[in-house]
Nucleic acid binder design. Structure first.
Lengths: 236, 236
DNA sequence: CGCTATTTTGACCACGTTCAACCGCTGTGG
DNA sequence: CCACAGCGGTTGAACGTGGTCAAAATAGCG
């Protein structure tokens, strides 16, 4: 990681999609005082599961996968954080170590705020606290949704749902198809849907053969998203 | 449900284990002004998944199962709420309907606070907001833990882990064994571990035969919790 | 160009589901 | 009073999804 030239949060291009979107001039100044900004490259780890939590991270740009590791070393990707997202907040108020590992997937710029500084900011500004509450709530919703899927849906359906959420976050529409602007290995796909690499490969092959999807320069193209949507309903 | 005699939160026996444990006299008075208390019996539903969220619920006593229902009607028990727990808070800040159903398992007393009243309370008292943030964080932790288990652990291990969390919440030690002070049908066990009734039955039978557990008046007794703990590690 | 990591395919196996039948208990109506 | 339906629990047998293991093809990289 490398430090980059500091810039007031006031001028940050991604301010509008953060929890500080409605913060006052004064609060922004406080934030400027305690933040540092860093750049990371693919493969670098921002923090490891189990290590003590020192502060909170705000993503300015890039893509970061957040995953948990089971006792026997298997990894489960919980979400892929992007611009405007927060990381490390779920442990901030529990005095517990980090509960997942954050690994950079694509050139990323992250702002870091030391935890006490952020806590001060919170206690003086309930609006930010409420914004954070909303973020946490959304995370709970999706975590529980994920649990429900893992319990009752087939791998196939989970795979389809994953493709569709990717479309929502990273989809670019061109020539009647959705190009997913994100680089994923088969292993990462497997870890995201809770399956083995082999089944991820098989699903990709099958869906490619059926013509629902295709691949160009290692990126997935969704060719028939209606079909995919119908697959999530029919169960099979 | 039936309304019960109102009592100031100041004198509530479960105040100490709620998010208001450190609230000021003044805040407690505000709370008194906007809360109503109700009693529910087994089988009654406090709120349904999908219905609009009107307020937030604080449990004074009793046991309530919170579950989500999949499209094809299967239910997944996410947690069992007890004294001091909050319900409905995860949707409070997202303007979304309830994302789960709350069904009473045992005679329960619940305090209800209308959402605007609660929001006001929050914005004027960051301490309460931070307490709530901590609760939400804990919920995220366990939801993600659950997802990891569902993805990579066998039903057997999930079953054992479930027994052990029950022991933590409802266990009473007597005569060298842990009596679980909670009434659960096989179906409820199945819904909690993400399995079918049949497998829940089979696991219960097997564990009974092995002597790890037993049953008395429809309640589970854990006879060998060390053995159970070792089972979670060995994987099988 | 060789070496390693990733992807792909095939064969086999097992865990857990599904389906079906049966038991014991409780409540209900003729 | 007994018959019978209904529900929760229990067990057995068969099936299928998805994991495991092994081996080959391909891509990436010094």
């Amino acid at each position: 990681m490398s430090k980059i030239k500091e810039l007031s949060c006031k001028f940050c291009s991604s301010l509008s999609c953060t929890i500080f979107s409605e913060a006052s001039e004064h609060e922004i100044e406080l934030l400027d005082g305690c933040k540092t900004t860093n750049r990371y490259r693919r493969g670098q780890v921002v923090f490891y599961e189990g290590t003590p939590l020192l502060g909170i991270y705000f993503i300015r740009s890039g893509k970061i996968k957040l995953y948990k590791t089971s006792e026997d070393g298997k990894q489960q990707i919980l979400r892929i954080a992007v611009t405007g997202d927060v990381m490390g907040h779920s442990s901030l108020f529990t005095n517990r170590p980090h509960l997942m590992t954050a690994e950079v997937m694509e050139e990323t710029a992250i702002c870091y705020v030391e935890k006490n500084g952020f806590r001060d900011l919170l206690t003086h500004n309930a609006d930010i606290a409420v914004k954070l509450l909303a973020r946490l709530s959304h995370e709970i919703i999706s975590a529980e949704e994920k649990a429900l899927d893992l319990a009752y849906e087939s791998v196939r359906v989970r795979f389809v749902k994953f493709l569709l959420t990717l479309k929502q976050s990273f989809g670019v529409y061109e020539q009647g198809a959705w190009r997913l602007e994100i680089l994923l290995s088969r292993e990462e796909i497997a870890q995201a849907i809770g399956a083995t690499v082999e089944t991820a490969v098989r699903l990709m092959s099958e869906f490619r053969a059926e013509g629902w999807i295709s691949e160009e320069q290692k990126r997935v193209i969704i060719r028939n998203s209606e079909k995919l949507m119908s697959l999530t309903e029919s169960g099979y």
